[in-house]
Design a protein around this nucleic acid. Structure first.
Length: 633
RNA sequence: GGCGAGGUAGCUCAGCUGGUUAGAGCGUACGAUUCAUAAUCGUAAGGUCGGGGGUUCAAGCCCCCCCCUCGCUACCA
């Protein structure tokens, strides 16, 4: 594929039945935000869409439990999402919602189009139905005794005790999780998308990146775990999948279709189409309602989906099939799914309240969005699961943000204010000094080119969705700055060799100016602080990265001599132990499982001599036999 | 159970189609330095690359067996 003219970037629609936690950020929102900011700074045309996913049984159930309407639930979380994203600096071009009439219309039109073009087959099946709740039950909402291990609390789709995959009709003594009643089997009819009929082109598209005989994308650019899972499904053979559900809260199957009464669109014909309706709303907001077509239907637009690993099959198989079945839409050129973020050694869990809630973080750490962003980027689960710990959060803040970057910037700003009254020093380019990379060469020949290389390195990493790598390059730029100061000691030479001081501090300030631009995709708030320190306007994310790369390549200054900068002000503050201890304590006290554990009081600590009296030995089990009459556990 | 991804230094991770003494950041130790938020700079120590077997002149990388973690397993979203 040639260089695309424009990009359409989507981030997975968060499900509106609970607040956002750090796992959401690490999974899809930070990476997509960085990528879009980066593309804009490269002068690219980008539209970044997202929105709340507000339908489905889980929301209905939650509403019933809380005695309110589904609408009240989704309104509450939608508002919270909008606020949380905004405060975290996740900057969508449009944040839409699937409950909007525009979305319902869009999804229905899409469904109708597929229906009219005979893309569906109709099939009858028997499903469990909860008579008391008067609704069909998804497998997940049926519990019963596992036929394999006798666990009385197996779900209709899976037994969490023995891990086996189940069919709800296999359960012994099934019961509805809604009413607790025994469900009855009832016949229902749905529209199925024959995924199996799409296998051939899908395989060619995924494995070789070819679509309709044309090169579409480079599969080498896709992550191994993404392709691996897709191939695994393809190798197993695809089956027709129902595109409608018997639900009460969702998008209606269009009334013009016979027997559509009570039927709702399946979430995967609802949520991803939310990307399309969001783009439509964006186009309307731009005053050009047809503009969305350029982003979805023009082949010169690159579509990229940012998601978590749990969504791979839907974004790489099912949604592409839906789009292709329609025929007028682009398929994604990449789906850079992240893996999962764990928290303090355990999986993040909403139900167990084992999470760091982003809205709470924003309250507890006011003005410290970039500290969280930095830590999460550094530990982003790009290729495998990763882990967030408060201790590591403190360490990255104190050792890297405070000690490395904030300290470097502060040194430069303080020195220039002290020696030159805050005016950028002019300099003689022929003065020799030791560079940050330990070369004794001149300003233009080496130092600016070194910087250029680092910026280039960062760009390359970001183009390839290597956000951790990009962040590393950013920090290396700051380290080059610290070395430059250390190698030349301008605080000494100001008395002995002021020309040397001038060139070194000028260059150090150019590095600060590079940081102002390069930090932007990762830490936008910090970029603004740097702009303020340098007395420059905040970045607008319109090609600034491209501009500084051209400047550096041509030996140009990012900040002219005699420009007046501002007084020093710390970019980051140290986080003391108490703050971290409080957060860890909060995590544990809010955990309902741990709260209910009553430990016996610990026995008093013994002396080492007493310990030494113990005779502890290890043994190796050589043989194990079944004892007759013993129960199987 | 099946399939997929992962397992590399105390911690977090790089290691392209197999090619010399396996790298980085943080932490640790020592030295230098004092403009700076006790920050910075340099040097060093630290690894049977999950385990076992095999192919090869050569294996972190390829093949086989096993162990561990996570995901998917088709009506959760």
């Amino acid at each position: 594929m040639n260089t695309p003219k424009r990009y359409l970037v989507t981030a997975a629609l968060p499900y509106a039945n609970g607040p956002l936690h750090i796992g959401h950020l690490a999974g899809a929102y930070l990476s997509s935000d960085i990528y879009c900011r980066f593309l804009r700074m490269q002068g690219k045309e980008v539209v970044f869409v997202c929105g709340s996913d507000e339908h489905g049984a889980a929301i209905t159930i939650k509403a019933k439990k809380e005695g309110i309407t589904p609408k009240e639930i989704v309104d509450k979380y939608h508002a919270l999402f909008v606020d949380t994203f905004d405060k975290m600096g996740i900057k969508f071009d449009i944040y839409h919602r699937t409950s909007e009439p525009l979305h319902h219309e869009t999804a229905q039109e899409f469904f109708k189009f597929l229906y009219d073009n005979q893309q569906f087959t109709e099939q009858e099946s028997e499903q469990y139905f909860d008579v008391q709740a008067n609704q069909f039950l998804a497998d997940r909402y049926i519990m019963g005794t596992c036929p394999k291990c006798s666990n009385p609390n197996a779900y209709g789709d899976q037994c969490e005790n023995c891990g086996s995959t189940l069919n709800p009709t296999e359960l012994i003594d099934p019961r509805s999780t809604l009413s607790g009643e025994k469900p009855i089997l009832k016949t229902t009819k749905h529209w199925y998308l024959p995924l199996n009929q799409h296998e051939v082109w899908l395989k060619e598209w995924l494995e070789n990146g070819n679509l309709e005989g044309k090169h579409h994308h480079d599969p080498e650019e896709w992550k191994a775990h993404v392709l691996g899972q897709c191939k695994s499904w393809l190798d197993g053979g695809l089956q027709p999948r129902a595109m409608t559900r018997d639900l009460e809260w969702g998008v209606d199957v269009p009334k013009s279709i016979p027997n559509s009464e009570g039927k709702k669109l399946y979430v995967w014909l609802d949520a991803p189409i939310g990307y399309i309706s969001a783009t439509k709303q964006w186009a309307i907001n731009q005053g050009n309602p047809d503009l969305w077509k350029k982003y979805w239907q023009d082949e010169e637009t690159s579509l990229i989906h940012f998601i978590g690993k749990d969504n791979i099959v839907f974004h790489c198989l099912i949604f592409p099939i839906i789009l292709k079945a329609h025929g007028d839409y682009n398929l994604p050129i990449n789906v850079p799914a992240n893996q999962f973020l764990n928290l303090e050694g355990q999986k993040i869990s909403t139900s167990r309240n084992w999470a760091v809630w982003v809205h709470e973080y924003l309250q507890d750490f006011e003005g410290m969005q970039d500290v969280l962003r930095y830590n999460m980027i550094k530990n982003m689960p790009e290729q495998r699961d990763s882990e967030f710990t408060w201790k590591n959060f403190q360490e990255t803040n104190n050792n890297e943000l405070v000690n490395n970057i904030a300290n470097f910037v502060n040194r430069v700003i303080v020195l220039i204010n002290k020696y030159y009254g805050g005016k950028v020093p002019d300099f003689d380019p022929n003065v020799e000094f030791t560079s940050g990379s330990n070369n004794t060469e001149s300003y233009y020949d080496v130092e600016l080119i070194d910087l250029y290389d680092k910026v280039q390195e960062m760009s390359d990493a970001l183009y390839h969705f290597d956000f951790r790598g990009g962040l590393k390059s950013l920090m290396e730029i700051s380290s080059i700055g610290n070395s430059l100061l250390q190698n030349n000691e301008p605080w000494k030479t100001i008395k002995t060799d002021p020309d040397l001081t001038a060139i070194v501090l000028n260059l150090a300030l150019q590095i600060v100016a590079v940081l102002r631009v390069c930090s932007r995709p990762f830490m936008p708030f910090t970029s603004d602080k740097l702009s303020n320190l340098l007395n420059l306007p905040n970045l607008e994310e319109k090609g600034e990265l491209q501009e500084i790369m051209e400047l550096l390549a041509n030996g140009g200054c990012l900040i002219e001599p005699n420009h007046q900068i501002n007084e020093a002000n710390h970019l980051f503050v140290r986080i003391p132990d108490e703050v971290i201890e409080q957060q860890i304590a909060k995590l544990h006290t809010n955990n309902p499982v741990e709260k209910n554990i009553n430990f016996e009081p610990l026995k008093p600590t013994i002396s080492f001599d007493d310990f030494a009296k113990l005779d502890l030995r290890t043994g190796k089990i050589i043989e194990a036999k079944k004892v007759s009459g013993a129960k199987n556990y």
